[in-house]
């Protein structure tokens, strides 16, 4: 199934922030279309792993390859093109308050080089349908719920057909029912062949949907198989 080159290849990478060691000699891969969790306590380095993947943090050692880009040695001018191959979703990812849902996505499309108006319209319809928000296209961010806003953020992350969705605690501010809906959308995206890395501290998600899990603990990254996660008691 995973015969192609992995979407993410991390080899012996170490992350430091302001001289402080966060994670040391971590190695993992994420295959095309794979779903993977990143868990760990607050401050354990979950977000740092994700930041390293989208080029926000440069590892001090090791090799990091994401969507064909050598992230450790990537030029600043190449970062936008790496990020167009990824879909990044996190709690504080802002929508433009003065534009409606459709315009928010249109803005993102134009920001990433789309110019053809018909193609833009088609893409907006496509991604809004994927997240079940077609009826809310003309609503402004303040007119929709938190869960719906997060769905818009996911729709926006899907505009360039990313090979990988990186979601950093996307359900952090949402109630359990809405969280389930968001996770379901991410699972649907995964089923359509896009790899997803989801950082979370909500273990009930893992219990319901077990997948390979990377655990940040004491400066190390432990890997747990899907079957281990399925059997583990999270109580």
């Amino acid at each position: 199934m995973f015969s192609e080159e992995p979407v993410v290849q991390v080899q012996q990478a170490s992350i430091e922030i302001k001289g402080r060691n966060i994670l040391k000699d971590i190695s993992f891969t994420v295959q095309k279309g794979e779903f993977c969790y990143v868990i760990g306590r607050t401050g354990s380095g979950k977000s740092s792993v994700l930041k390293m993947l989208y080029g926000e943090l440069t590892p001090v050692r090791g090799e990091v390859k994401v969507a064909g880009y050598d992230v450790k040695n990537i030029k600043k001018s190449e970062l936008p093109y790496l990020r167009r191959k990824l879909g990044i979703v996190f709690q504080d990812f802002q929508l433009l308050p003065d534009r409606n849902v459709s315009e928010n996505i249109e803005f993102a499309l134009r920001a990433t080089g789309w110019t053809d108006t018909i193609k833009i319209k088609n893409k907006i319809s496509e991604v809004l349908m994927m997240v079940g928000l077609s009826a809310r296209a003309l609503s402004y961010p303040h007119e929709i719920s938190g869960g719906e806003q997060q769905r818009v953020v996911i729709a926006r992350a899907l505009i360039n057909d990313p090979v990988l969705i990186i979601a950093d605690e996307p359900t952090g501010n949402l109630d359990p029912e809405v969280s389930k809906e968001i996770i379901q959308i991410l699972l649907n995206i995964h089923k359509m062949g896009t790899a997803v890395i989801l950082a979370t501290h909500d273990y009930s998600i893992l219990k319901r949907n077990p997948f390979k899990t990377l655990e940040c603990r004491m400066g190390e990254l432990l890997q747990h198989s899907q079957s281990y996660i399925a059997q583990k008691s999270w109580d």
């Binding site: 001018s77 970062l79 790496l82 990020r83 920001a111």
Partner: peptide
């Protein structure tokens, strides 16, 4: 500043 950061993460060029 957060809108700027969001745009960067979408993949907008500087």
């Amino acid at each position: 500043r957060f809108v700027i950061r969001s745009m960067q993460l979408i993949g907008a060029t500087d």
